[in-house]
Design a protein around this nucleic acid. Sequence first.
DNA 1: CTCAAATAATTCAACCAATAAACAAATCCG
DNA 2: CGGATTTGTTTATTGGTTGAATTATTTGAG
Lengths: 380, 380
Amino acid sequence: MMTASSAPVRQSSVRAHNLALVLQTVANSADPISRAAVAAATGLTRATVSALVDDLIAGKLLVEVEPAPRSGAGRPAAGLRLAPDGPAGLGLEINVDYRAACVVDLTGRIRHRLVEAGDQRPVGAGSALAALSLLATEARRRAEADGLTVAGAALAVPGLVTGDDTVRIAPNLGWLDVAVGELGGLPVAVDNEANLAALSELGTGELPPSFVYISGEIGIGAGIVLDGALFRGVRGWSGEIGHLAIDPDGPPCRCGARGCLEQYAGQEAMLRAAGAATVADLAAADLSTAGHALGTAIAAVVNLLDVGTVVLGGIYAPLLPRLRDAIGAEIDRRVLTADWSPVQLRAASYGPDAAMRGAAGAVIRGVLDDPAGWLARTRA
Amino acid sequence: MMTASSAPVRQSSVRAHNLALVLQTVANSADPISRAAVAAATGLTRATVSALVDDLIAGKLLVEVEPAPRSGAGRPAAGLRLAPDGPAGLGLEINVDYRAACVVDLTGRIRHRLVEAGDQRPVGAGSALAALSLLATEARRRAEADGLTVAGAALAVPGLVTGDDTVRIAPNLGWLDVAVGELGGLPVAVDNEANLAALSELGTGELPPSFVYISGEIGIGAGIVLDGALFRGVRGWSGEIGHLAIDPDGPPCRCGARGCLEQYAGQEAMLRAAGAATVADLAAADLSTAGHALGTAIAAVVNLLDVGTVVLGGIYAPLLPRLRDAIGAEIDRRVLTADWSPVQLRAASYGPDAAMRGAAGAVIRGVLDDPAGWLARTRA
DNA sequence: CTCAAATAATTCAACCAATAAACAAATCCG
DNA sequence: CGGATTTGTTTATTGGTTGAATTATTTGAG
């Protein structure tokens, strides 16, 4: 009921917290940063920072680089940066028409990227996962050939996930209650693609700490980021906006209800309405119906969560210029607070790689959030 | 961007955290609890718990009570309970037709309660607040006569609040940009009534850590509790569900849009639809239109946030038996995950006092969450 | 009635991590 | 070249938890 997260704090937790603090201060700095600057930024002592940095360097999380071009008097600073050859994250994705794997290092750079196109639906969950496991193994092999250590793996799926490793239902893949287990010899954290894509957007550093990412694909999902952390809901099923009711008398939806958002702004509905064959054709179509529906849904999200920024991803990203007016009109009409602080609409920065990149990012974020755990692992 | 809340942790923070941990462990225990049991529950050492408890007793946050009826051998335990005569919270409320104040002690008991009925709209913000300040002073006087120390005050208003002390807009009071400042000689934290009512429900201890409280009054608002903490949104304007779109072609709303929830399930709409004069008359009316609208909105909330419990307060609480079927039908239709884990609908435990009680509760929760801060204040 | 067993709470030395202040290193500038 | 300046390290101190030993208070068995 109360908030003091019922775990005791021992001294070692202090160190764990401060290790994370130092590491993240370095991570958030655009340029290499000195120990002294970290101390100033965090409020810790230079002595403490030095001690912490020693640990982080020994654990291959930070590296010292050439002193930055100097100015003024004084001993030159040694620059600190995230280690490009330390732990890395393995990001995996299975979607309707491809499977993919990538390796992202601590600095956020994609080091390897493997994609296999092909319809995953007829294959079945077992074979699809077996093939993905091979892909994961290959990605891992390449990463280790580079001197990277794969710290973990995460998998993005278009569906509902429970308990971190079971796909409860993925309608568009035809999956039901699929336990993922290990892939490429690593335990895998499974999550919804919209959630992970939201994380990858967060990783750009160009967004406020709270926003909602809307993923437009065959289905429509939302990834909710509050205060810099993904909000998953009680069972991990937050962000299911595809079946928000837009019009109680609207067209029937395969979910059994009527007038769901997907019936107006889902990929298939948009193609049908525009008489278009491919997503590319939509760029020239009239999307006002979809836009108004999407705007109504976004207004609901903003009214409920009071987020100031909405990121549109998936097929919406390239179509945003044509959707913006209709969405904006609904927001202005339906969001009471829009007068005081307008809602920002943005297109996603990453294209189809967003979810996979977010999956890898989730792994490295785990290391960045708990470096002490990583250091303990490496020592063992 | 990252999560390690950019403050360094010094050793004293460890103590502050553990003080809160011990205090809350005692608070969450139904019966008096021994130091040894606290140690077992928290994972701290008995020695540490003893030292922390000494501080908490010295600061009038805990008291030792008679050993509980024993069983078995061994030295009898000294029971610990929250102090009934330590800090107390002053809860204030201004609503359309009354103003009120109450004093709640650490244990959650209402010690004093003052209500003045009367339409607050013609009075204007200034006079209403001045009158409330007198009420607050009187409540505080009575509390201190009991030996209580008023730790702070919070005010519930039916409107949007910014920056903890300014009412941006309260449509039903006719307030616009009202800065509250001090009342009864205390700085006041202002918050939305639905938020505070939600907190009071959380305080019952009978709810899961995540739920949504829906307040049905003239307007409709929601208080969102996630993981035991109120979720306020970026600017504190979360939970504005009164203007969720139910039907794009529905009746026009005073907000400028059409088919808002308030036009179906707001107090005035329900009275009009039922041809009733008072809220009491609704108990016998057909509320299916309101119920379906409410159910549609609740389905949206659940799809978005994945909360498993919805608490209905305000005028909805007594009407829940008549609303339940319609709400449930919409939830079943529109919430994909309802098959796996059904959404619980509950009536609120507290009646009209909920918001005021929650305001007082917010104050004592502040003490419970940061006992170290309170101890520092008392020593000064 | 006395003594062993059991449980509660306190005392005390050890330890861990951060701090503050002094010190060493490396550069700039007059 | 020498003082000023900034970075980074060393060392003694301090705050806070731990673990073991100690004291306190009861039940129950002989």
